[in-house]
Simulated assay, not measured.
Amino acid sequence: MAKIQLKNICKRWGSTTGVKDFNLDIEDKEFIVFLGPSGCGKTTTMRMIAGLEDPTEGEIYIGDTCVNGFDPKDRDISMVFQSYGLYPNLTVYENIRFPLKIRKVDSNTHDERVNRASDMVELGQLLERYPRELSGGQRQRVALARAIVREPNVFLMDEPLSNLDAKLRVSTRAQIKHLQHTLQTTTIYVTHDQIEAMTLADRVVVMSMGELQQLGTPTEIYDRPANTFVASFIGSPAMNLLDGDIINNQFTAEHTKVDNVSNQLPSNITMGFRAEDIQVSTEVEGDITAPVYSIELLGDSTLISIKIKDALLIAKADKTFRAKIGQPVSFIIPPEARHWFNREDGSRIDI
């Protein structure tokens, strides 16, 4: 297996910077997820690890070897793409077997390795079919089996679930997590879906504008976002963020008065809080009181939204909670649920 190190990696195309001064150590057997919006540099970073792009600056190590300049075939990696990349004229069996043939692996081992890989992703009954005869989920499992059969040091997965419907994404996600646990292979997974990141990763790399915003376990990133970008990107719904002022130990904004705020905080600040960490009331005056903007019944809970200037704030109430649009409601924010951020640069403030 392999540890991966990225040292001061930059990628530029003329005056455009895709990845900027990127440093990361990925442990052997770790499942790490690159998470961020489109254009943040996550796929470019993966492509540099794969050898499909050359870094403008910096060094990439797989194990103890600097692989700058190595061809992809010489890096002992397997990739799973969003588009599956199956050969339409080959059966499932031959698609899975293909990496063994081109690498001239002993043909006497092919049957055993193909069958083992196909069994891991529950394709044993489909080996004689062609890709056109498979569903999207089955095709993605063929792509996974083709990566597994190589028995590489590193798996690279570039948004492999984005073409699947919601139900298939859930089941395939669980399968990928179980596979990585079984195979114990270093895995790098690229996605813009924060639910995939939170459910799959040992650690998450949150990226924006080609830079690393935060690195940590899903729990660390969810509970203590490093800045307002991470806070607004992680969570469903994302963390509520409200700009305001602190005057005489009170955070104030439109419809908002939050008492007992530390005097160590700057006067101009952003307060954050998670939807599930607060209480909602139609009877008791709270820290924020405003008319209901929308109400969404989810079955297991009810989302209540209010609007303060341009900020849409959401609370997750009990599934039995009911209110009408336009009816005043109060959000009660316990002190331990409050997060504070610098309004100038968005960085977290701990007190």
Rank of each mutant, 00 (worst) to 15 (best):
Y293P: 01
K42T: 15
G58D: 05
T228D: 00
K257G: 00
Y87K: 08
I288E: 04
G299F: 15
G36Q: 04
R173L: 07
Q138K: 04
A238T: 12
I278R: 03
D243S: 14
R116V: 03
I188H: 00
S15W: 01
A231C: 13
T65L: 08
H192F: 10
L242C: 02
T320Y: 01
H339Q: 10
Q279C: 05
F31Q: 02
P334I: 05
P335Q: 05
W13F: 12
Y130N: 09
P99M: 10
K73C: 07
A226Y: 15
E344M: 11
C40K: 00
A231W: 03
K3C: 13
I314S: 00
E27M: 05
K316R: 09
P237C: 07
G346V: 03
I49V: 13
S208A: 03
L183H: 04
Y222S: 10
L183T: 07
T65Y: 12
A145T: 01
D259L: 10
R348K: 14
L127F: 07
A50M: 09
I351V: 11
N153P: 03
L183Q: 10
L100H: 06
G69I: 09
K167T: 11
M157I: 11
F341P: 04
V258A: 05
L52W: 02
F233D: 01
Q214I: 11
A201K: 01
I332V: 13
I96L: 04
V142I: 08
P99W: 07
D223R: 03
I102R: 10
V149M: 03
F98Q: 12
L144H: 05
D165G: 08
N153R: 11
Y130C: 00
R103D: 15
N248K: 13
N249M: 14
I295S: 02
L86K: 02
S208V: 04
V280E: 06
A147K: 00
D243Y: 07
E344Y: 12
T56W: 06
M198H: 11
R338S: 04
D76G: 07
F331G: 03
R113N: 09
L156G: 12
P88R: 01
G346H: 15
V205R: 03
E27D: 15
D106H: 14
A166D: 11
H181A: 09
E128S: 09
R224K: 12
E336K: 02
I332K: 04
N260G: 14
G14H: 15
